[in-house]
Amino acid sequence: MSSTTTEVLQRKPRNVAVNTNPEHGLHLVESDVPEPGPKDCLVHVRATGICGSDVHFWKHGKIGDMIVVGENGLGHESAGIVIKTGSEVTRFKPDVVFFSTPPYDGTLRRYHVHPEAWLHALPDRLSYEEGSLLEPLSVALAGIDRSNLRLGSALVICGAGPIGLVTLLAAHAAGAAPIVITDMDENRLQVAKKLLPRVRTVKVAREDAAKDLGTRIIETLGTEAELVLECTGVESSIQAGIYATRFGGSVFVIGVGKDFQNIPFMHLSSKEIDLRFQYRYHDTYPKAINLVNEGLIDLKPLVTHRYKLDDGVDAFATASTPGARAIKVQILDD
């Protein structure tokens, strides 16, 4: 442990976290710096991205059966540096950390204890901001792996939010072509164009009928989609993706939506379209780290807003306000 780290711990610094509760409150809380167990590491979290699920737990108090029943720390897109280790820890300096979903507190806090086995070392050339973006990239990589996207696959991505845009970058690296991305927000579609000039865009309106939107997607793509990666979880968007898919194609839902939804059952059946889903991911961090470190995927342009940890509540306001035009809001701590 460095002399600087020792001085920090001796000063008993504030351990600040961003919490929500069943009353949909959002506030900073302070606690003692935790002690790592024998196989744990104490991490100073340096960068945390705000995920749509964090906003959802705050605003709605639940996602499916995962319900906020008490004070619950938010955040799971985090990167930081190990400043103290348990007696049985045998490795680690810089690391990436992941947590959160009730009843477990998240990593949007200054100091967080995390199992050594679940930490991944960052190469020196990757920043903490890039490290925290490896979590949404892991979501995209799991979707691409499990959906069997191949070189030259005609692809539709529904939703140009953070997950949709990371999926766009990963699908490009995987060789999908052509690619269409959809969204209601013209600004997000323009961001997609800047990230990948060859992508084709379809702007969605709330009043669009799903079947008509599916037809428009096909016209823009130039063919029926072999694969749709649905990144919104919105019922009408899933329906449109289904109508845009060719015979024997696949619709792979990554987004989080309502507990019960309607689907065009007989259309799926008559065209033998596979409808599949993704909940989480596993063993994706090493691949995500390599892709970014080798320059195949550049995550840096996704960060549009940065806040200090003490301004975490303001950061959530920005992340949840469409007019702010945020893509990825990050909370940083020096």
Rank of each mutant, 00 (worst) to 15 (best):
T4I: 05
E7Q: 15
V8K: 11
Q10F: 09
R11H: 06
P13K: 12
R14W: 02
N15G: 09
N15E: 10
V16L: 15
P22S: 07
H24C: 07
G25M: 03
V33C: 09
P38K: 10
R46T: 11
A47I: 03
D54I: 03
V55R: 13
V55P: 02
H56Q: 14
F57T: 02
K59V: 07
K62E: 14
I63H: 01
D65N: 15
N72L: 15
E77D: 10
E77Q: 10
A79M: 08
I83D: 00
E88M: 12
F92D: 05
V96H: 01
V97K: 00
P102F: 03
L108K: 03
H112R: 12
V113N: 06
A117L: 12
W118S: 10
W118F: 15
A121Y: 04
R125I: 08
E129A: 12
G131K: 05
S132D: 04
L133H: 02
R150N: 15
I157M: 14
P162F: 01
V166E: 00
T167S: 07
L168E: 07
L168G: 09
A173P: 06
G175Y: 07
A176P: 10
A176F: 10
A177K: 13
I179K: 04
I181S: 01
D183S: 15
D183P: 12
R188L: 02
L189H: 00
V191K: 13
K193D: 06
L195G: 01
L196T: 02
V199L: 08
V204I: 14
R206L: 10
E207G: 01
A209Y: 02
A209I: 04
A210C: 11
R216P: 03
E224Y: 12
V234F: 08
A240D: 09
I242T: 04
I242L: 07
G248S: 12
G249Y: 02
G249I: 02
F252C: 01
F252D: 00
F260E: 15
F260H: 14
H267E: 12
K271A: 11
I273T: 04
L275P: 11
A288T: 09
I297A: 08
I297C: 10
I297M: 11
L302C: 07
T304P: 05
H305T: 01
H305N: 11
R306F: 06
K308P: 02
D310F: 08
D311I: 04
A317I: 12
T321V: 02
R325C: 11
I327V: 15
L332C: 15
L332I: 15
D334W: 05
